[in-house]
């Protein structure tokens, strides 16, 4: 855990806690960023995190909530492609929180 207590790690985040240099992301960073949001990552969380990273790779932007849910629905089916499912995992501002944990920039157009 020590590397995440260092000033160097804190300096790699912006004031809202998003990674400034996206290449610095790895799974251990995700665990730490989730911990700071009081979230303990389970396989269900990882599934969404991997998916949002795939979205970012494909569309070159972080999705707002509406697009995230549509994309989850398209890729994982309608059981998971619902706001309530994603919000149960990541809380009320799910799109912002997932983007943060997945090492993406803050989504534009998010309410």
């Amino acid at each position: 855990m020590s590397k995440f207590n260092s000033q160097a790690f804190n300096d790699s985040l912006d004031e809202e806690g998003y990674l400034l240099i996206l290449d610095r992301w790895d799974e251990s960073v995700a665990v730490e960023l989730a911990f700071r949001e009081n979230i303990k990552l389970t396989e269900a969380h990882w599934e969404i995190i991997r998916l949002i990273r795939k979205f970012y790779q494909r569309y070159q932007m972080a999705p707002a909530s509406r697009a995230l849910i549509s994309y989850v629905k398209k890729e994982l089916g309608s059981d998971k492609g619902r706001s309530v499912y994603v919000m149960r995992l990541f809380g009320g501002s799910a799109a912002k929180t997932v983007a943060k944990i997945a090492g993406l920039p803050k989504p534009d157009n998010c309410i």
């Binding site: 569309y59 509406r66 697009a67």
Partner: peptide, 15 residues
């Protein structure tokens, strides 16, 4: 630059 088509493809995901 970012290829504009990628952003255009997201229109559908936003309804």
């Amino acid at each position: 630059s970012k290829t504009i088509g990628r952003a255009l493809e997201t229109l559908e995901l936003y309804g």
